[in-house]
Amino acid sequence: MESILSFGVALLVAPLFPGIILKVKAFFAGKKGPPLLIKYYTLVKLLRKGFVYSTSTSLVFRMGPIVVCATALMALLFFPFGGVAPLLFFQGDVIVLFYVMGLGRFFMVIAALDTASPFEGMGAAREAFFGTLAEASIFTMLILFYRMNGSLSLAGYFTGPEAISQTAPAGALLLLVIVALFMVLLAENSRVPVDDPATHLELTMIHEVMILDHSGPDLALIEYGSFCKLLFYASFVAMLIYPFHQFGPVLAMALFYGAVALVYVAIGITESIMARLKMNLVPKYILTSFTLAFFAVILSMGISQ
């Protein structure tokens, strides 16, 4: 019951948090900013609209948003928000989840290529490239998690007495992983400094340019999918910072969403004080995250010996 509730809450609040980022950015710019619920309004507006399809597109283009949204929702099904056991879990589910999200990326990319637009092709190529690097970084982190706690599932990482935390032996290494994961979060969810969601020039975009031709409910599905994906990564970071499982479920949830909000504030601050990297520096950026994770893994060997 708790699990269903926590999943439902996550689905409900996913569009809330990006509003926080906008607020933080507005604060830094000295503006009032859009209302906190802006993303809900956007979703409702998009769902009411009709469709426009390019004559170049085929069935693949329509499948894209569906698969993207479905894969993002699937990731949330397995996540133990605030240490509350998730709806589903099994040994090895993280591998499945990251591959399922890979399927989402696959369809996102081919849907973009389906439009025959040179700009969308460019965005697709970047997405595919940076995705491969981010995946390597994530799997390196999974190696560390397995060595710390012998588990291969999100529920195993974050629930129960064996949960990963900074107080465990070799827990200090989590610091490296948190930084690395935050960097991957920014890259995978197309935030500054990898991609600028607020830019106006198609040549410099990654994610936004791929969805240029989607419209109406299709666009709503993609947007909702990306909110869910961002929530997934932000929750991951929050749970690594502090495991909340020792509190009661209600308090844990409250504290957990507070921590998630802090992660979003951190994203907002990053976006406000940093500029987007030059495209040829992005691989270096993601590689840094991979190296951090690899450092942590090697150090875990040194410490445990």
């Binding site: 769902l47 948003p65 409910p217």
Partner: peptide, 17 residues
């Protein structure tokens, strides 16, 4: 879900942006 939201919606076709 998408089907439910696309009922009675107009579908326009045009060139790629």
């Amino acid at each position: 879900v998408r089907k439910a939201f696309s009922l009675r919606k107009e579908v326009a076709r045009g060139p790629t942006w």
